[in-house]
Design a protein around this nucleic acid. Structure first.
Lengths: 276, 276
DNA sequence: AAGTGGTCTAGACCACGGG
DNA sequence: CCGTGGTCTAGACCACTTC
């Protein structure tokens, strides 16, 4: 049944992982199907259950399987949920989620799109201070920023988190420092305050979540987060740093040169443009 | 010494991981320093070595420590090598690395920038076929693509890998299907072939590397890859899908609305623009 | 209640690196 | 060489889901 392990060539763990990987690849274990139990596999491969578990962890970290406590180990469904897109010519406003994203998600059959807003006063330091045009060496009192945390829930689960930072000199004692949804968006509020956005850039990176983040997002181990930082300017003055954190299995970013047109529709119907 | 574990509140593994995390956080274990051996920690926490190892794996997956076989476990150095940027208005050509990136890396003190080129004939399927405007249902013979694999090495280590796909109808039997560096870039070759780029978009995602990729890149466990796909068009005809895969600890993508100017220099001196 | 994965142990032995 | 982490085992018991 099993191609015998060439003794010494690799560890049992890797041998088992490779065997299972092959079975998943050729469809022996179909998508979504439950794998044999650890005990059964241990017998089949004539190794201890602990070693089977090690192999399972390898597969889990590759995102091939999902292990469910008390239930079994399943071949991970291909993540067809790829979507979300943002145009560099648009503006990822901290609270326009409802207008662009939520309707799309609802159309896709998801309900219960909830958005919560929190406010915190924070001190900018390091890279974020620099991006907001604040000298990180200044005393704390002069490095204050208003932090707006916007959590988007889909079906009761955290879908993405957006943390916006505004220099306190701009946002303190304005609508921006009130923990309440702003229907017209923070960009408009900034404009009314005399800081019209004239330029912006995005920084995109990826990292693994902390244990708390993994719990918040409900993501399996081995799933990275995409982090997008959009820094906006009014002339030479940085006015906001909007950070969006998204699990990589449900999000993909789209950046288009010039106008986004119907050609991107080849990607499928799941392209959402936030703000044009 | 240790804050006693509140029995039952959490697993020993998490308790130990948390303790070590705290020590790393407050500097008890400095950056780059070696942690006590697994055996010593097992004694200190009065648990078995296996459980210590489980805790170590947790920390490793968070990117906090690096475990070196035969040597010890070390607090991971912060990766200050963040950089690389690309402008959406530029064109990430499959081989312009030398002109934009290599000089920058050399200026930063890195030497030995090597680029290798391989060619393969492949069959497009699934999402990639769709992006290249090829019906995935067509017979294999009509779904052929020329695949150009471009590996960039820095100091003998794989730094990033670029895999370009061109429809075979365009690239077959042209300079594009010869495994040799193209100094003027593939964009120019396409133009000469009558396919001038008129539009493009990027898809950015992140995922964990496969075991082979981890080995190629020499990255530690728990480090994701950033994947950028740039799809270029000539009119309505997709002409290339250039995929760049980069470890997330050494790369960050920069997308700017309008022209990139000196304002991004606040990010530091490590901003490289590939092709304007 | 039965079944499945999660935690933990004690110990043996292997593989790698330079304390 | 010695010390370090890596692999593997057999088994006990716990936690979760419901096959």
């Amino acid at each position: 049944m099993n191609s015998d392990r060439i003794s010494g060539s690799k560890s049992k763990r890797d041998w088992v992982a490779e065997s299972l990987r092959a079975r998943i690849g050729d469809g022996s274990y179909a998508e979504g199907a439950r794998l044999p139990t650890e005990e059964v596999l241990a017998e089949e491969f004539e190794i201890s259950r602990n070693t089977v578990r090690d192999a399972m962890k390898v597969l889990q970290n590759e995102g091939l399987v999902v292990i469910r406590h008390g239930s079994g180990t399943y071949v991970r469904n291909n993540q067809p949920i790829v979507h979300l897109a943002t145009s560099v010519h648009g503006y990822v406003d901290s609270e326009r989620f409802q207008r662009g994203y939520a309707p799309h998600m609802r159309a896709a059959g998801y309900d219960q799109i909830v958005e919560t807003v929190e406010i915190a006063l924070d001190t900018a330091s390091g890279a974020r201070a620099v991006r907001l045009g604040i000298d990180p060496e200044l005393p704390i009192a002069q490095r204050q920023v208003v932090k707006r945390i916007c959590d988007r829930f889909v079906e009761g689960q955290l879908w993405q988190r957006q943390v916006s930072h505004f220099p306190a000199t701009i946002a303190m004692n304005t609508e921006l420092s009130i923990p309440q949804h702003i229907e017209r968006g923070t960009r408009e509020v900034l404009r009314e305050l005399g800081y019209e956005r004239t330029w912006s850039y995005d920084l995109v990176s990826a990292r693994m979540p902390s244990p708390q983040e993994r719990q918040s997002f409900g993501t399996p181990p081995g799933l990275p987060l995409i982090v997008q930082d959009r820094i906006a300017y009014s002339g030479e003055q940085p006015i906001s740093d909007i950070q969006t954190v998204m699990p990589a299995d449900r999000h993909q970013l789209l950046y288009a040169e010039g106008e986004v047109d119907e050609r991107v529709l080849v990607l499928g119907s799941d392209v959402t443009l936030i703000e044009r």
